[in-house]
Design a protein around this nucleic acid. Structure first.
Lengths: 127, 127
DNA sequence: TTGGGTGTATCAAGTTATTGATACAGCAGG
DNA sequence: CCTGCTGTATCAATAACTTGATACACCCAA
């Protein structure tokens, strides 16, 4: 269900976090469902427990899961409304019509994201 | 016109690349216009020439500029039509309302892009 | 040709980030 | 109690990245 490709430039914990986040937002994991334990997932993926733990920590910080001493469960989330997916689809359609490559389209989102941020995005803090 | 904030966690070359890309896509720099030379920009920003050079290299790879032995010029770009920018803005707005982090929003675009593209875009290269 | 400009390539050093191993604290059930 | 499970915290080693300094190849004008 989850895979980690060590040959990618993306860190393992980020791959895990992203795939879990996507699965949760896509509704593939029902609210309240139990996630595999850190050690089990770490064993399956052949990574250190700390690596999976970091993914879990960030998912909890993002409000997607809730970690108890008895395990991690999927939080009731706002399902990443259809609005977002619709907007994404519209954006993708425009980009493809303009023959803009994926990475360029993402760069465009990045640029506008930062310029429209205004609020101190915690993601990138000062050193 | 371009600024670099060393206190940010974002690398200097990425700040330069992003600001230039934004300026070009926003039409602030006309097609064919000459960019400042690497050394001049490096001197103004108090960074090493290699730092600016890397920003230039990535901009050229993205098809935004064209580097000749006599300087770098703004490439004729498809101006990233207003439709695309509008769509991007709508997408960004929805994502922010849902409190979805930038990287997750980009992942969503990636996923839908591939599912609508069918061409095996690698996206992230191997080490 | 010569001098000053351009982008490019390479290299070492410093810093940052990721990873793996390990020990810790709480909870459930036998 | 005690065994086995859960997530959490810490630490050192490694890997990756970014940066600055420098040398190189090319082009244009004088």
């Amino acid at each position: 269900m989850i895979t980690v490709d060590q040959s990618l430039a993306i860190p393992a914990f980020e791959q895990i976090r992203g795939q879990l986040a996507h699965a949760i937002r896509a509704g593939e994991l029902d609210a309240g469902a139990r996630l595999p334990s850190i050690r089990q997932l770490a064993g399956d993926l052949r990574v250190a427990p700390g690596t999976v733990a970091r993914a879990f920590t960030e998912l909890e910080a993002a409000g997607l899961i809730r970690s108890d001493r008895r395990g991690a469960r999927v939080e009731e989330t706002t399902v990443a409304g259809d609005d977002l997916r619709t907007a994404a689809a519209a954006f993708i359609r425009c980009a493809r019509e303009a023959s803009i490559p994926l990475e360029d389209a993402l760069s465009l989102v990045r640029a506008d994201w930062e310029s429209a941020a205004c609020e101190g995005e915690p993601g990138k803090q000062a050193r």
